[in-house]
Amino acid sequence: MRRVLTIAGSDSGGGAGIQADLKTFCAFGVYGMTAITAVTAQNTKGVDAIFPLPPSMVARQIESIMEDIGVDAVKTGMLFSEDIIRAVAQALCRWPVEYLVVDPVMVAKSKAVLLEERAIRTLVQELLPLAHVVTPNLEEASVLAGFPVQNLRDMEDAARRIREKGPRYVLVKGGHLPGNEVTDVLFDGKDFTYFSGPRIETPNTHGTGCTYSAAICALLALGYAVEEAVAEARRYMELVITHALPLGGGFGPTNHLAPLFLRAGLDPQEGGRCW
């Protein structure tokens, strides 16, 4: 079984972060492991509190996994602080991995800040050069590229600018653009690949960025090429958003195991036994 590590924050509401990543790994049949960077108190309405772990503890979690179990692919999510980013980068330099997916999480859907402003430079200088794929949304791409990303041409320009900072592939996600179609742009330093599909109208999209990057990471571990991994991850995202769960009073979570429930002939929103 392929081994996949997520380095991210814990979401007490279960829809994003470590919890979303593990559910996604299960859906793809890979063995998921975690290095928790911060504990959050949050629900579908927002983030109430963030408690970052000591950077040494984050690094030790990574090292413990590497020393014994090993990994086939790694993804990062919420890293929160400059010191945690540096500790993660140093650990990944000591234990190099072929496939590192960096989801540059900066702000939650509730607008809670998940990455300190002074940490952005450290993310760019120390982590992006290690990345196989980086997956910014429009807001994150704007910060990383240094200009507003407001249309498809901007997405292409941002992908070029971000790739100059070191990652092998840049996937700029277009979900925040208006319109009935959602287009993501993948850049490998030479060519652009475009992935488009109909917008699914639902407020229940908490954790979509975490889930998307976790799916790409799992598929890379399974041997998919990057273009194939993104295409397959998008198909997965269409299912988990279509069957998203109307829980709580804010942005409900996606339904990470919807494909398995459907295959078992069960209602994805009801769940239940499927083994």
Results as ranks from 00 to 15, higher is better:
Arg2Ala: 15
Arg3Gly: 09
Arg3Trp: 09
Val4Asp: 13
Ile7Ala: 08
Asp11Gly: 07
Asp11His: 06
Gly13Ala: 14
Gly14His: 02
Ala16Glu: 04
Ala16Thr: 10
Ile18Gln: 08
Ala20Asn: 09
Asp21Gly: 09
Ala27Ser: 13
Ala27Phe: 02
Gly32Tyr: 08
Gly32Trp: 08
Thr34Gln: 08
Ala35Gln: 09
Ile36Asp: 14
Thr37Leu: 06
Ala38Trp: 01
Ala41Thr: 04
Thr44Pro: 12
Pro55Val: 03
Pro55His: 13
Ser56Ile: 07
Met57Phe: 15
Met57Glu: 14
Gln61Ala: 09
Ile62Gly: 15
Ser64Tyr: 07
Asp68Thr: 01
Ile69Lys: 11
Val71Cys: 12
Ala73Trp: 03
Gly77Ile: 01
Gly77Met: 10
Gly77Cys: 01
Leu79Ser: 04
Asp83Phe: 00
Ile84Ser: 09
Ile85His: 06
Ala91Thr: 08
Leu92Ile: 06
Pro96Cys: 14
Pro96His: 08
Leu100Trp: 02
Pro104Cys: 06
Val107Phe: 01
Val107Asp: 11
Lys111Asn: 12
Leu114Pro: 12
Leu115Ala: 13
Glu117Met: 09
Arg121Ser: 14
Glu126Leu: 07
Leu127Ala: 03
Pro129Ser: 06
Val133Asn: 11
Thr135His: 06
Thr135Arg: 05
Pro136Gln: 07
Glu140Lys: 05
Glu140Pro: 06
Glu140Tyr: 03
Ala141His: 01
Val143Leu: 11
Asp154His: 03
Met155His: 09
Ala158Arg: 01
Ala159Lys: 11
Arg160Ile: 08
Arg160Met: 04
Ile162Val: 02
Val170Glu: 13
Gly175Asp: 12
His176Cys: 13
Glu181Lys: 02
Val182Phe: 08
Asp184His: 15
Val185Arg: 05
Asp188Lys: 11
Lys190Ala: 14
Lys190Glu: 11
Asp191Thr: 08
Tyr194Thr: 13
Phe195Pro: 04
Arg199Thr: 06
Thr202Leu: 00
Pro203Met: 02
Cys210Lys: 10
Ser213Gln: 15
Ile216Glu: 13
Cys217Gln: 08
Ala218Gln: 03
Ala221Pro: 00
Gly223Tyr: 03
Ala229Pro: 07
Val230Met: 04
Leu239Ser: 10
Val240Gln: 07
Ile241Asp: 07
Ile241Leu: 04
Thr242Arg: 12
His243Thr: 15
Leu245Lys: 01
Pro246Cys: 05
Leu247Ser: 03
Gly248Phe: 07
Phe251Thr: 09
Phe261Asp: 05
Arg263Trp: 15
Ala264Glu: 10
Gly265Met: 02
Leu266Ile: 00
Leu266Trp: 01
Trp275Asn: 03
